[in-house]
Nucleic acid binder design. Structure first.
Lengths: 351, 351
DNA sequence: TGTTAGCACTCGTCAAGCGAGAGTGCTAAT
DNA sequence: ATTAGCACTCTCGCTTGACGAGTGCTAACA
């Protein structure tokens, strides 16, 4: 059963008012503030119907109405109009977001800070998931007779390296051989794949020196792969929620803060979300049943996908926040194109 | 004016009781629980004197007494007896603290987790400050015609490296030359020194190619030094404080949580503290005036110094917590000795 | 038939008042 | 110097009553 035009207007008014004031809104105040051309009594009747349909709830008999998750969902899907960023917010992002590929993590973290500053909510940002990245080549570089650098180059140009110190000296030949050896074995395979299957694989080799070197290198190799796979999560502005009336109860505040302590879990949940701007409201979301979570994705070289997000009470300015996040992720994606590339981010890439 | 034996006993009893129950303690309950052989009235008189001397305070006329910062200070300095770790805590540390030099940061973080789990308070751990570390040598390693690895080796064996991608190709000779060049310039100088003075120094060189390469490398070099200097701070168990009666007020809880958001500032404050086990109570400490902060130091190779710490209300079990921290830092220091070294951690080190 | 005015009713909040309980501080007796 | 006794103070929990906000229903109206 569809809602009438008037019901939609009333619902919209209630949502607007409640988002603003965080207090149950009554029929009279709607009639006064929003010019709907009907009396409070009529509004009351409509409200009663809306409540029956599940769009509104009632804290207690004589309180005003509060929008339900379902109402917000309707609002986000149908009623919400795209909002233009305020000049102030736009300027803030343009001036303060100094994105640089070289300092990837710092940029990401910065974006999260900015996001929480603008929205006055808690926010986070994650570096891209790299489990679909494939290995281009592996190289071992000599440092001194017992020290070497292990370098892994991924297909998106992602380069990671670690320094290893062995218990015994190695030879230059075995180093070169192992480099080739490993490159042949792993080239084109995804990090995920290698990490999961490599433990079982045999390390054996004909040449004694090589075999020994490989035995020394493999643990570091696997650990480095793991590091490459790790998604970094930065959470910012968690304490912002203390300013919101819904978090004056210690218990809710505590629950919220627990997110901080469960970063790994949270990261997993966020990785599982779809790309693009995604809004999950209240019960819809698996993280905090009484919060709304909005995530958006940015791209690196038009390929790898990272996420940023905002967490707050279901009562939030959906239109503004989604616009801000869209703008911000577009900016990030633009900054993270390969240098010199113009279009899809694949030009100028050759190994 | 010194305290009498009886006054000390009473003070001790009040502290013990208050630490346990978090409620103002009255004369009657002390007389009952602790066998001091005097009546409540006598205790009342003594309490009154103790209050006059500043060891106790009075929330209001008809409440019991609460120990002041000064009382805790006296307790920590004079009254407190070293406590043996409970077998349970000892076992927990021994079993769960898998310290490994290779995964330094993870170990440190783990230590913080453990500490907050045992003490049920908020805790933190910092990686060592490296500002006194000196540079041993610098090396540039070729990867492909535009990519190279910059490696900086410190005197304590600390190795850091970054991958650089240049806009234009470089030559092998200029690479070798620059490596030597930089090593000569920076060998023996502290990271701090180089970082502070290098921006001013002239990049100029006779050879054009070298000069250009150097211009490309220097920014990364400086940034990498900065990374080496950065102390990592891990905070754990912040939400533990929600279980304490002193943090049922949202405002205090918020103030506490703000620490999370001010990690840089916090790190600076912690670096400024003395080594060893340091207890600062309430007003004594510059971080949170109504908290107690206990820090302790661990050593790496008997040289670099990192810190772990506990933050909580002034009402805490000083004896237990200091013992735990001492035990934990000893364990860490032991684990972070150079492999193969026995005594001062300087054997087996040769470049 | 949809809309509205009127009114009784419900519920939460706030302030005031009261009694109980805990603890002190003083005084006088030991 | 210590202690028993007692008046006094203050908090806490409970109840009460007034007030305000808001609803839901009914009857009148266009």
């Amino acid at each position: 059963m569809d809602l009438s035009e008037r019901q939609l207007q009333i619902l919209q008014a209630i949502i607007t008012d409640y988002v603003e004031n965080a207090e149950p809104v009554g029929s009279r105040s709607i009639a006064k503030k929003y010019d709907l051309g009907v009396s409070p009594a009529t509004i009351r009747n409509e409200m009663s119907d809306l409540e029956e349909m599940g769009y509104l709830t009632h804290p207690h008999t004589s309180a005003g109405r509060v929008p339900s998750d379902k109402a917000y969902r309707l609002y986000v899907n149908e009623l919400m109009k795209k909002k233009n960023l305020s000049a102030k917010d736009k300027r803030m992002i343009n001036e303060r977001l100094v994105a640089s590929r070289d300092e990837f993590d710092r940029t990401i973290r910065h974006a999260a800070e900015l996001l929480s500053e603008i929205t006055h909510l808690a926010s986070f940002a994650m570096t891209p998931a790299t489990n679909q990245e494939t290995i281009s080549f592996i190289r071992l570089l000599p440092v001194d007779e017992r020290t070497l650098i292990l370098m892994i180059v991924g297909d998106s140009g992602n380069v990671t390296n670690t320094t290893l110190r062995l218990n015994s000296p190695y030879t230059q030949e075995s180093l070169d051989l192992l480099s080739k050896n490993m490159t042949v074995s792993y080239k084109g395979r995804t990090l995920d794949d290698v990490l999961k299957n490599e433990i079982a694989e045999d390390v054996g080799s004909d040449i004694e020196a090589l075999s020994q070197l490989k035995g020394n290198v493999m643990p570091s190799f696997l650990r480095t792969l793991e590091d490459m796979l790790n998604v970094n999560l930065y959470m910012e502005g968690m304490t912002n929620i203390f300013n919101l009336p819904e978090y004056t109860s210690i218990d809710r505040a505590r629950d919220f803060m627990e997110l901080f302590a469960r970063k790994d879990w949270f990261t997993q949940k966020m990785l599982a979300r779809d790309n693009g701007v995604v809004v999950t409201i209240g019960e819809e979301n698996a993280v905090m049943k009484d919060c709304t979570l909005i995530t958006a994705t940015y791209h690196v070289d038009g390929k790898l996908v990272g996420k940023i997000g905002v967490i707050g009470p279901t009562r939030m300015k959906y239109d503004e926040i989604t616009s801000i996040m869209e703008y911000l992720t577009n900016n990030l994606s633009e900054s993270f194109k390969l240098p010199g590339s113009s279009g899809d981010g694949n030009a100028g890439k050759d190994e």
